[in-house]
């Protein structure tokens, strides 16, 4: 797994150096959700609620581990690094009540899952957003 990690880090550095814009939170356009607040996004991604304001279940999807976007997202969302996020989840691991977001294996899988799984919600680079997707939350500049 070590060569893969190195490769990801390099990629991240490459992409990062290429385009370091904030991620945006998106849902499938057909879902009918217009906007989410920062709090709502936090609740959903940090396991407090697994539902949209409309009441429909929400399924958060994480970028693959080591993704610079993922790091950036949590940094911007709850101001914690990835280790803290991991520790958080590991503390909840045994009670089984709350589970971490679904983990995609790649960026593409993220979009795939987003489009396929009901109630999916994920964060992307703004450049990855297309018509099938709708931005419901943007980090303020």
């Amino acid at each position: 797994m070590r060569p893969a990690t190195c490769a990801l880090l390099i990629l991240a550095l490459l992409t990062g150096s290429g385009a370091q814009a904030d991620p945006v939170v998106v849902v499938p356009a057909r879902l009918g959700v217009e906007k989410l607040s920062h709090e709502e996004v936090t609740n959903i991604f940090m396991g407090r609620f697994r539902a949209l304001p409309s009441g429909a279940p929400a399924l958060p999807i994480d970028q693959p581990p080591g993704s610079p976007l993922r790091t950036l997202f949590y940094q911007r969302l709850v101001n914690k690094d990835q280790a803290s996020i991991n520790a958080y989840w590991s503390r909840l691991h045994f009670s089984g009540k709350a589970t971490p977001p679904l983990q995609a294996s790649s960026e593409t899988q993220v979009i795939q899952q987003l489009l396929t799984r009901p109630g999916a919600i994920a964060y992307l680079e703004r450049s990855q957003v297309d018509a099938r997707l709708r931005i419901v939350f943007e980090f303020p500049p």
Binding site: M46, R91, L92
Partner: peptide, 16 residues
């Protein structure tokens, strides 16, 4: 721990 338990409403954790 309490914060986390409360945040996610985890009874198990809270009881612990």
């Amino acid at each position: 721990t309490l914060r986390v338990a409360c945040f996610v409403k985890d009874r198990e954790l809270a009881r612990e």
